[in-house]
Amino acid sequence: MENTFSMRRKEIVGKQPFVSDVMNRWLALFFEEQICAEFFRVTRVELTKTFLSSLDEHSAQLIKLYRSRSGKLDKELKNLLDIFDEKTTDVLEYRKSTALRGLPLYLKEQSDGFLKTCMDTDPVDVAVQGMELGILTVVEDDVATVNSFPTTRSIALIIEEQIVLDDISSFPTAFALLFGLIYALNLDYPKNLRYTFEAIQKVFLSLGTDCSARVQALKNSLLK
C-alpha cells in the first residue's frame, strides 16, 4: 500500500470514483490498520492514537459544557446526559461516547442520518438506507434491556449506503476511523455536520489552525 500510494491518490482525487469501485480496486484500504496508515501518509498524523488521546483529555470538559447548555438546547442533549448519568459500569468509556454523540447537538447541528442504531433482528439493508456517510450501531433485541442499556452487537461504518468496515471495537474508534476514511477517500464533510467535523479536524487532531467562530468558541471553552 505504501508503494502504490501515489497511484491511488491520483485515482481517488482525480477520478472521484464510487466507494464500491475503490473497494474493488483497493480492498486493503478498508481495514483498520490501513485506514490509519493511509491517514498518516496524507497528514503525517497518527489517527487513532491522537484522536483517542485528545478525546480522553477533553471528554470531561465537554460533558460539563453540555450540562451548561442542555437547558438552552433541545431535549435530545438533555436525554443524552440523563442516560449517561444512569450508567454505573464502564463510565469512562461511556463518557467518551457521550462526548462525541453530544458534539453535533452542542454545535447546533443534527446527527440524524449520520448516527443510527438498529436491532440485530432488523434487516441491515433497510437500516443503512439513506446513509451516505455514518456510523451504525447494532444492538441486541432483548425485551429485558428495553428500559436499561442494550448490548451492542456490532458497530459499522457506512458510506454510500453500504457497510465498509464492521465489528469495530468501540464507538470512539469508529468515529476516528470514519474520519480517516474521509481523508483516504477524499470525501467532503457532511454539510449538516460541517462544524462537528471541523472540530474533530482542528481541535481533536490539530489539523489546521483557522477555525470558524463556532469551533473557535468551543476550542476556547475547552482550554479554560
Rank of each mutant, 00 (worst) to 15 (best):
N220K: 11
F51W: 05
C118E: 04
L193G: 01
D85T: 11
F39Q: 06
E11R: 10
L105K: 12
F84M: 12
T89H: 13
R194Y: 06
V164L: 04
T209Q: 12
F40V: 06
E160K: 05
I63V: 12
L29G: 13
P123T: 00
N186C: 04
F30L: 08
A28W: 09
Y195W: 08
E132W: 12
V138A: 05
K191M: 10
R153T: 09
Y66P: 01
K219W: 12
N220L: 13
A156K: 15
A60L: 12
N220V: 15
R194F: 13
P172R: 06
A184Y: 09
S20N: 07
T117L: 08
N192T: 10
A213T: 13
V138D: 10
F40R: 11
R9A: 06
M131V: 03
K191L: 11
P17S: 10
T48D: 02
S212T: 09
N192Y: 08
I158C: 07
I135G: 07
W26P: 06
K202Q: 05
E132Y: 14
L107S: 02
T173A: 06
Q110L: 14
F197P: 08
S111A: 14
D90W: 07
N186G: 03
D85R: 06
A199N: 02
K224I: 10
P104S: 04
N192W: 05
F171V: 02
T145R: 07
M131T: 00
T151H: 13
A144W: 07
Q16P: 07
P123C: 05
Q129E: 15
L222H: 04
P123R: 07
G113H: 02
L205G: 02
I155F: 01
K87Q: 09
D82L: 14
L115S: 10
F175V: 12
F40S: 11
E93H: 11
R25L: 15
L185R: 03
V124A: 08
D56E: 11
A199R: 00
I159H: 04
P104E: 01
P104V: 00
R8H: 03
H58C: 14
L222Q: 02
L52D: 11
T89R: 12
D141T: 06
N24C: 12
K49R: 13
A37Y: 15
T48L: 10
E160W: 05
S111T: 07
S111D: 15
D167L: 02
D166E: 08
S206P: 01
V143T: 14
G102R: 01
L205P: 02
V128W: 00
A184L: 01
F149H: 13
L80A: 01
E140T: 07
T98G: 03
Y94P: 09
S70P: 05
E32H: 12
K15E: 14
V22G: 01
G134F: 00
P123M: 04
S206D: 10
M23H: 08
L47M: 04
K72W: 10
L222P: 02
E160H: 07
V203R: 04
L77T: 08
A127I: 06
G71P: 05
F171W: 05
L193K: 02
L136M: 05
E198C: 00
R153G: 12
L136Y: 07
K64Q: 15
M119T: 10
C118S: 07
T98R: 01
V13S: 10
T48R: 13
F179V: 03
E198D: 06
V139Y: 14
L136G: 03
V215Y: 05
V124D: 06
W26Q: 06
